[in-house]
Amino acid sequence: MLLDATHRRWIVVCLALLVLATAVYVPYARRELHGPSGGSWPGLAYGVAGLALMLYAGVLGLRRRVPTWRVGAATTWMKGHLWLGLLSYPLILFHSGFQWGGPLTLVLMVLFTVVVLSGIYGVVLQQYIPRLMLSRVPLETVYEQIDAVVQQLRQDADALVASVAGPLPDEVTLVPAGRRGGGGVGRRGVVDAPSPRPVSVPDGTLPEAVGLKEIYLVEIRPYLAPDKEPDARQATPAVTAALFRHLRTVVPPALHPTLHELEAICEERAQLSQQKRLHHWLHGWLLVHVPLSMTLLLLSLVHAVVSLRY
């Protein structure tokens, strides 16, 4: 969530609450003979307030699971999750008197700290990565559909090449390079030296497209495979552009429009790869934040019940 001017009200309210809580805490902590503790009445009040805010922050997950609930806009919930969840941390510190306590409370504080830090990390990432994605991935699609789209891109590319070079085999076994060429992609094969073995040319296709077909099968088609992350070198736009500049020098001009379209498909593939990586950065922290939050809430409830018991 982008921190913009709409957050100002939340920030002001939370800061005011924090100042109020601190103003109450300082004299309380100085007055207590043994220092502040969670079992004192002020400590209990801080604990109840902190737990309430933690529960509110945790309900965001439910709110997202049932988007049809008419309980306020999702952005409002997100802002509340962000700022009230952050406010709950100092309240819990006031509750504990800045001490770790016993084993359970120690685990709780460690979990809480990791949850808060991971949340802050996520917020910071959200200030940069969406903008980065907007500029670098104009062809962004739904994350969960990236593999499906890549599959379609490959089918489109296959159809494109087949239209000029005849039907394509299902898969091509990669031929190890006999020597490294100057094309910059020598690891996968020699792009400037098409195989001398004869290739049958079907009716209605261009004989000059045989070279393109072979290069496509060796170099481009694997790059379009949806089930594996493409080579980082090829995923770089500069490398892809260099590849196609080189191809234009080795295939007849009649095939340049086809090359042009193939290049567009490869570029979209590269963008989707980048989207996938950026998405992992943008949302990967949730694999820490969410599970630990759930554990934190569970153990917090156990702590609350047992502590009130004694």
Partner: peptide
């Protein structure tokens, strides 16, 4: 390179119940 597909054609590639 010039885009091969329009936004609409790309949107159609998305499964609506994904």
């Amino acid at each position: 390179a010039e885009r091969l597909y329009t936004t609409k054609s790309r949107a159609k590639r998305i499964q609506l119940d994904y």
